[in-house]
Design a binder for these strands. Structure first.
Length: 423
RNA sequence: GGAGAGAUGGCUGAGUGGUCGAAAGCACAUCUUUGCUAAAGAUGCGUAGCCUUAACAGCUACCGAGGGUUCGAAUCCCUCUCUCUCCGCCA
């Protein structure tokens, strides 16, 4: 959520920066400002009337104590009360409307975020490693894992539906080894505290991180309980401190959480046609940071480095790209995507998206921190995948496939997998 | 699921219709004093909004949440949420 004061003071520069995202946001800004004017005038009027009522009511109390008749003055205050109700309804309605509008305006891209219209204009930041060479034609992960009995795509469809999958045997064990490897790396080497959150959350949490109200159709919902299945651990973990004022000496807060993630992927093309690449349910280890505004830019680099370290340790070729203003997410100010090379696909797959949200999420969830001077300020929130599991699985299987159809387990993972190869 | 108790400021805890945004204590901050590593005193010490300002100040709202009664609600009524205790059930 943007600060209404920023909008009041610099509406034109806000519109300009939002325009870099593409899409039509200027009229939303105008609407908010119009409502804001109405809201404030109603609010001022209401408060003046409330002040009148308080003062006169106090006089009634005193008069009654002195045994005086107060019926006339009571009638007067009754009239004020009616006015307060009327004006109050207007003020409250404007308030709700203003908040709704603010919640539907995306975040401002950071000054450092490259300006561009679409994914084609995302600059490549760096590349690590090289494409592995094969003495044979590398196979697709569905073929390799299928042959080894690691994944049963048909069973997933049978018990749930398309874009759900059943891991079996070495496949399930590889998935579990990866989870443990990632959690151990981030908690023991990178200094994150491990969190194991609920997978169902209240709607307020999704409002806090920005999925609601705009993207409700992408999230699974249980209407009986009004609970949502999390699309990412970012939601419960960032919301751990919703409505809180944390002390400055607690910052930065660093959390790592493994959870399954659930996404409806409504409107996504190609679902279920490419093995593990786009699923309704997938595992992910998520990194979340809450920082001071002064350190968030540097922390985004650190966070991205932690995610990259995963791929480096596993010996997987990857590149880092920065998303341009036309491609960054709704709440993000600046985003790096990490894409791992999958030889069987002949393509890079996005396994991590690392973003700084500035104060956008924190303002939505009323998260604040008390600084050294005792002032309440709004912290910055960041998150990044460290990393998504299904696509990491794909890259790993396709990169380490052998001519005989077996899969070599990279050195760093052997302690967790407890074997050197599959097949 | 059943029965009971409760929810007040960072914490403890008073307050059952009229200067209560809320006593007192603790904690915390600043200052003073004595002095020595502890104590005494003074002052300050919630959040948000509105209106203003150079700044201070002022006004309004908030005593779990929402609604109601009333000229006036922390206080009375209703609904909900949560916590605790006991019983039942369950992993």
């Amino acid at each position: 959520m943007l600060d209404i004061r920023l909008l009041r003071e610099n509406p034109d520069s806000i519109k300009q920066r939002l325009a870099n995202r593409g899409g039509e946001h200027a009229s939303l800004v105008d609407q908010v400002l119009e409502i804001d004017t109405q809201r404030r005038s109603a609010e001022t009027e209401r408060q003046k009337l409330q002040g009148d009522r308080n003062r006169i009511s106090k006089e009634i109390g005193i008069a009654k104590k002195n045994g005086q008749d107060t019926s006339a003055i009571e009638a007067e205050v009754r009239g004020i009360g009616t006015r307060i109700d009327e004006i109050g309804r207007d003020a409250d309605a404007s308030d709700v409307k203003q908040r709704d509008l603010l919640l539907s305006i995306p975040n401002l891209p950071h000054e450092a975020c490259p300006v561009g219209h679409s994914a084609e204009e995302n600059p490549e930041v760096r590349v690590w490693g090289t494409k592995p060479a094969f003495a044979f034609e590398p196979k697709d992960h569905t073929a390799i894992a299928g042959a080894l009995g690691m994944i049963d795509f048909e069973a997933g469809v049978k018990i749930t539906g398309s874009a759900f999958v059943v891991y079996k045997g070495a496949g399930a064990r590889l998935e579990r080894a990866l989870i443990n490897f990632l959690l151990d790396l981030h908690t023991m080497q990178h200094g994150y505290q491990e969190i194991s959150p609920p997978l169902l959350v209240k709607p307020e949490c999704l409002v806090g991180t920005g999925q609601l109200p705009k993207f409700g159709d992408q999230v699974y919902h249980s209407p009986e309980d009004d609970l949502y299945l999390i699309p990412t651990a970012e939601v419960p973990v960032t919301n751990l401190h919703r409505e809180e004022i944390v002390s400055h000496d607690k910052l930065p807060i660093n959390y790592a959480a493994y959870t399954p993630c659930f996404r409806r992927e409504a409107g996504s093309a190609g679902l279920g046609t490419r093995g593990l690449i786009r699923m309704h349910q997938f595992d992910k280890v998520e990194l979340v940071k809450i920082t001071t505004p002064e350190t968030s830019v540097a922390e985004l680099e650190t966070l991205t480095g932690h995610a990259e370290n995963v791929l480096q340790l596993l010996g997987l070729h990857y590149r880092v790209i920065e998303l341009c203003t036309g491609d960054i997410g709704f709440g993000s100010t600046k985003t790096y995507d990490i894409e791992v090379w999958a030889p069987g696909q002949g393509a890079f797959l996005e396994v991590s998206s690392c973003s700084s949200f500035g104060d956008y999420q924190a303002r939505r969830m009323n998260l604040r921190f008390k600084d050294e001077n005792g002032k309440n300020r709004i912290p910055h929130t960041l998150n990044g995948s460290g990393t998504a599991l299904a696509r990491l699985f794909v890259a790993l299987v396709e990169t380490y496939q052998q001519a005989d159809g077996s899969i070599l387990i990279p050195e760093a993972l052997r302690g967790h997998f407890r074997a050197e190869k599959i097949g």
